[in-house]
Design a protein around this nucleic acid. Structure first.
Lengths: 191, 191, 191, 191
DNA sequence: TATGAATGAGGGTTCATTCAT
DNA sequence: CATGAATGAACCCTCATTCAT
């Protein structure tokens, strides 16, 4: 179904969308990157927007699937949260280009496809909130406002694409560890 | 200097850039919004990009100035951090459109203006990091990695524009309070 | 009639038309050069095209008037031709900007004003041809085809604006002398 | 490489640039002339300016190449000069539109492309000057100032596009002959 | 006299997409 | 499968000119 060429094109699109932005990337740019003529691209894609949609969909889908797996494992809430953070940061960093496109460019999608992405993002938020509620209920966590707390954690994680550089001294584990400590223990020394 | 019309135009641009995105907003759209001919706009602006730059510049500048004020006040580190979070969330929410344009659209700027914005954003990060270092040094905080921690806090705060809706039940204070509790106390009940 | 301001404007226009060309010079450029607003210029001029017309008209008119004077003087044909060449080269060089505008930019005029300039140019050609005919009739000259010969002489003279630089080592007299020798004596040593 | 359409477009551009001038000719005009949409032109050209450059470049190049050929032939200086004049006048007249664009419109080019044309024009001048020097050295010519003399001859020849009309009674040979006589023998009967 | 806001038409260029070959 | 010609709408921006103040 998804031929080599199609994967090539998708990959080129990710790279270009990340570098120049979706709108600033022309179909010609993508064609050049895979060594095809502009017109020939349309044997493989339906539209430029569909390309963006595929990238964003695959990206958010991966986050969701991995989180589902974590939730299915028998762990305490705090272990689940730490695992979620590690997974999220790691995935973001390992697929920095894709993640960038997801969070920065998906806004350029039309209403309908954007709604699809939004729905999956909402689901993801629900799952994270669920971890917090679980910890709250079993006494592990004190959560002031689960949904907003989940949004805070997700905000921190999803902001990573904006500052993380592979050339820097930190790896994904370092970042995840710092995040986990912050969210679980807080900053204060006096508890 | 900044006439009524200029402010009108800026305001219309903020609104349109927030609604449709910078690239999808045409100069014609802005002209229509203020009741001018397309060409007439150019009595007030130099270019569409300059308009975006002005918006982004004013936005990040306001964040910086307010944070400077907070830092100048005689408070403990944890008070400063709470104040910073409250200010940041409140400003983001009160100027939701402007903030959205700042974080979502500034990427469309050319290299040079984007660099200016980036520099101010970096300064802001430095100031927040400074609060953490201060708290760390005087024993108030235990900070695993100050810079990454600052980025986590900023990520959470800057993500607000993506989910906050004025029509919802939460106000800025509610959000800020939840954020502060999370970052200061952490989630764990067992300390 | 022609106030100081009007002369100022004309002068600025000549300078700008010479430097950037008529079409590439905006009314704003001229306004800037004289320290007025674009709109204020129209108290002094009727249109940008009229400015060009005035410059071209004055330029060709001066050539014609000076040639008339020469023709009225009691001289041999060869003296008249030499005088004409000296006058033409000198005037071209002394008013290099104006002359440049005349020959290079007048084409941008509309049909009617261009016709006026053309008529005066034709008259000038007639007067030069007349010198040649005079010399031919009285035996001073051997002229193969008076009109074409006149056009050759005028071509040489009118080309001067394209290569003459005041910073060079030649002055108008040097050029005129070389031209006269060429046209009167020819290049051949064997006569 | 240069398809039919490309030649068609070039030809239409020459015609329009000659008739209306480069600046007054819109891309729309050219598109209309070849029966394409404005945007479709850009499959064949890079820009309007590039079109002008191509025309001017080809024109001056042809003059240079033909002069090189003449210089390579074993002839006396006076024969070379006569041949140069004949070639120049003939080429100018046979390609009257192209020649007109070269001398009248190339000024509208940007600095860089204009410099390229200028360099080739300078080379041409050098070659003509070389003929004069040759004749001067071998005693055929008496040349007062070789470079200025060459400029006079070129001025006369390059002015042709401004007055020659194919509908007139003169052909290229007539003009060339008159020019040659003038430059070689001069006007005076008394030598 | 001088301003500067406003016009309105036009400028060159880009681009996602289609389609006959 | 691949091409590349063609579309047609939209893009940002410029500019000579007018006119109320």
């Amino acid at each position: 179904m998804s031929s080599n060429r199609q994967r090539e094109i998708l990959h080129a699109a990710v790279k270009l969308f990340e570098q120049k932005g979706y709108q600033a990337t022309s179909v010609q740019d993508i064609a050049d990157a895979v060594g095809l003529q502009k017109g020939s691209l349309y044997h493989y894609i339906q539209s430029k927007e569909e390309l963006l949609m595929q990238i964003a969909d695959a990206a958010i889908r991966q986050f969701n699937e991995q989180l589902q797996e974590i939730l299915a494992r028998p762990m305490t809430a705090q272990e689940k949260l730490a695992a979620m953070i590690r997974m999220h940061v790691q995935t973001s960093i390992e697929n920095l280009e894709t993640t960038t496109v997801l969070w920065r460019e998906a806004f350029s999608l039309g209403e309908a496809p954007q709604g699809v992405i939004q729905k999956m993002t909402d689901t993801y938020l629900d799952l994270v909130t669920q971890i917090l509620n679980e910890g709250s209920e079993n006494g592990e966590f004190q959560v002031h406002h689960p949904r907003v707390t989940a949004l805070a954690i997700l905000g921190a994680c999803n902001w990573v694409y904006r500052w993380y550089r592979p050339s820097g001294s930190m790896n994904a584990n370092d970042v995840a560890h710092t995040f986990s400590k912050l969210f679980l223990d807080g900053l204060l020394t006096t508890h």
